[in-house]
Design a protein around this nucleic acid. Sequence first.
DNA 1: GTCATGATTCAA
DNA 2: TGAATCATGACA
Length: 193
Amino acid sequence: MMDEIGPNFFSRPPEVCARELVGCLFRWDGCLTRVVETEAYASVDDEACHTWNRKGAREFVEAHSAGTAYVYLNYGVHWLFNVLVKHPNASGFVLLRALEPVSGIEQMRSRRPGIADRQLCAGPGKLTKALGMSGKIHGQNFLQTTTRGFVRKSGTEVAMGSRIGISKAIDRLWRFGDPNSASLSKKFGSVTD
DNA sequence: GTCATGATTCAA
DNA sequence: TGAATCATGACA
């Protein structure tokens, strides 16, 4: 079964959204990819989330609806792409960490010259560059567009582990991914990380 | 494996 | 003013 994902999908707890997004197809203008790695962040009680120490992030959660793009510049170098999750008791974000190119590969190659196909989107900063994303889409609800969005696709094996690149709240196993994909940003361990 | 890169946010 | 930051590519 395959159907377009709407705001309702992102109206559940972030870890549920992040897990179910693995294996789904991601349409972004002329490019089509498969989601192979995500991470969940909670707007409350999660030290690793921007909302923990960023007033602007908390205001963003309040001001926008489920499915809105939350894009920010990391280390002053890389754009990172998140989807806003809204739930009465568990709002937060899903970070896209890695994608597998399916079609529109020529466009991705042109934005990342000299990179092997499977590595084009094998990291949170890599995928935004390959797809031509930037801060311009911050705050946009792309689910309502015709050229951008997710298509549900079940049946993918999902592994879980500790989130990457953070020093706080590493006990939460909120990184999800397809362990068999060749386009992960980092491999998954046997059980936990 | 180490290391330079370098924008934005927020608190002081 | 400065410290911290959800990473990457180049190089040894």
